[in-house]
Design a protein around this nucleic acid. Sequence first.
DNA 1: CAGCTATTGATATATTTTTCACAATAATTC
DNA 2: GAATTATTGTGAAAAATATATCAATAGCTG
Lengths: 216, 216
Amino acid sequence: MVMNRKCILRLSRYKNALKRLKALGFVKVFSGNLADAAGVTSSQVRKDFSLFGITGNRRGGYKVDELVLRIREILGKNEIHKVVIIGIGNIGNALLRYKGFETGGIRIVAGFDIDPSRYQPERPVPILPLDEFRSYVESNEIKIGILAVPDVAAHHVSEIMIAAGIKGILNFAPIQLRGADDVVISNINLEVELENLIYFVNVADKSVPALVTEDD
Amino acid sequence: MVMNRKCILRLSRYKNALKRLKALGFVKVFSGNLADAAGVTSSQVRKDFSLFGITGNRRGGYKVDELVLRIREILGKNEIHKVVIIGIGNIGNALLRYKGFETGGIRIVAGFDIDPSRYQPERPVPILPLDEFRSYVESNEIKIGILAVPDVAAHHVSEIMIAAGIKGILNFAPIQLRGADDVVISNINLEVELENLIYFVNVADKSVPALVTEDD
DNA sequence: CAGCTATTGATATATTTTTCACAATAATTC
DNA sequence: GAATTATTGTGAAAAATATATCAATAGCTG
Ligand SMILES: NC(=O)c1ccc[n+]([C@@H]2O[C@H](COP(=O)([O-])OP(=O)(O)OC[C@H]3O[C@@H](n4cnc5c(N)ncnc54)[C@H](O)[C@@H]3O)[C@@H](O)[C@H]2O)c1
Ligand SMILES: NC(=O)c1ccc[n+]([C@@H]2O[C@H](COP(=O)([O-])OP(=O)(O)OC[C@H]3O[C@@H](n4cnc5c(N)ncnc54)[C@H](O)[C@@H]3O)[C@@H](O)[C@H]2O)c1
C-alpha cells in the first residue's frame, strides 16, 4: 500500500480536528470542514482517506463518530500505549507531569535517569535507575521510549534503548539519531525549529512576504 | 529562488553536524561526510548548497570554518536573536531553564503568564504579566515567540502575539494554528509524534519492517 | 609535470506528494 | 418521483522533492 509518514501525521491531525468539531456539535463533516480545521485541502483529506479505505457518503460527508473510531483503529489507538522516558531533567519532567497524553491513549509509565538524586521509586510513575531499564522494559513489554538526556549521552542511551527492545524513539537531543532498521526514530530538534523561524522571519523582513505556515 | 522549508531545516542540521565534525578535528569535509552525519544523500547536500550558492573545491571538499560561517550567514545566525515565551508551565519552564539555546545564538529574554504566582519580574530572565507583553515586545523589538499555554487559550494568545508584532511562533499547543500571511508558525505536536511512532511500531510488528527513520 | 583519481556542480531522471477534474451518486427540492 | 445539487472517490496531471549521472576539474602521485 502506498502510504507515507506524512499521511499518518495528517490522520492524527484529522483526529484532533474531529475532537474539536465534535465539541462544537458537529455530527457529520465534509472533507472541506476537516481540511479547514487541519490546514490542508479537501482533496488531500479525501485522498488520505481513500488510501486507508475510509469512505463516507456522497453528498452526505462523514459521520464524526464513525470517522474518529476508524482513524483510531488505523492508528492503533483503541488501546492504551505505555511509554517510558529516559532523562528526567527539564524536558523529561515536563513530559512526565503532562496530563494531556492519557486522554489520547498514551500513558507515561516510568522514568529513568543515572542521577540518584532523581530516583523516586515509590511514586505512581516511578523514576528508576537506568540499570533497571532493560528488565523493566522487557517485563512490561514497552515498545516506545522518549529520549531526553544531554546530547553527549544520546547516542549511547539510544543503543541501550534499542538493545532492550524499544522499537520507537522520540528523541529530543539535538543530534540526528540513526537507528536499526526495525526501529523508528522521530527527532524533535527545537533549536533547528527556532532557527527556521528566524530564517523565514528574516527573509520576510527583507523581501517578499514568505507566506509560509508549516509544521513538523 | 527555489528553496523550501525542508531545505532550510537541513541547512540547520548541516550546521549542527559541522559543529560535531569540527570537534572531531575535521578541517575540511566532503558532501558525503555531511550526508552521513545528517542522514541524507550526498547529492542532497550538494543540491542544497547549490541552491544557496555555496561552493567547495572539486576534489577538495568544503572548508569547515568557511562552510559554518556561510550557513550561519544564510540562516541569519551571526547575530543573537531574542525570543520570548508565553505560558510558563511545564514546557515553558523547561525551555526557560535550557542553557543550550544561547550557544546557538538564541536568547530567551522573558516569559509571560496570566497566573500571578508565576511572576518573577526581578530575575535575569523575568517572568511578567501577560498585560505587559505588547509593550515589552514592541520596545525590545522581539520577533519570535514560543507559545506554551493550554490548548484552549492557544488561539487567543496567538492573536495577542501577532497583534504585538511577533512574526514567528513556535507553538506547543496541540491545535493547528493559522496565522496571518506574514507570520510563520511552526507547530510542535508531541502527541501526534507519539501516535506516529505507535503506528509504525505497530505495522512493523504485524507485517514487513517499516524501515522508517524520519524527522520533522 | 603528465597522468590519474576523487569530488564537485549541474543537468537529467526518478520518485513522491499534492492538486485537479470529473463521473458516480446520495440527499434535497419541487 | 424526476430534476437538481452537492459531495465523494479516484485516476490523471502537475508540482515538488530526491536521486543518479557525468563532464569538468582540483588535488594527488610518481
Ligand atoms: N530543556 C529544553 O528546553 C531543551 C530544548 C532543546 C533541546 N533539549 C535537549 O533535550 C535533552 C534534555 O534536555 P534537558 O534540558 O531536559 O536536560 P537536563 O540536563 O535538564 O536533563 C538531562 C537528564 O538526563 C540525565 N542523564 C544524563 N546522562 C544520562 C544517561 N546516560 N542515562 C540516563 N539519564 C542521563 C541527567 O541526570 C538529567 O536528569 C538535551 O539533549 C537537550 O539538548 C532540551
Ligand atoms: N508538558 C508537556 O509535556 C506537553 C506535551 C505536549 C503538549 N503540551 C502542550 O503544551 C502546552 C503547555 O503545556 P504545559 O504542560 O506546560 O501546561 P501548564 O498547564 O503546565 O502551563 C501552562 C501555563 O500557561 C499559563 N496560561 C494559561 N492561560 C494563559 C494565557 N491566556 N496567557 C498566558 N499564560 C497562560 C498558565 O498559567 C500556565 O503557567 C499545552 O498546550 C499542552 O497541551 C505539553
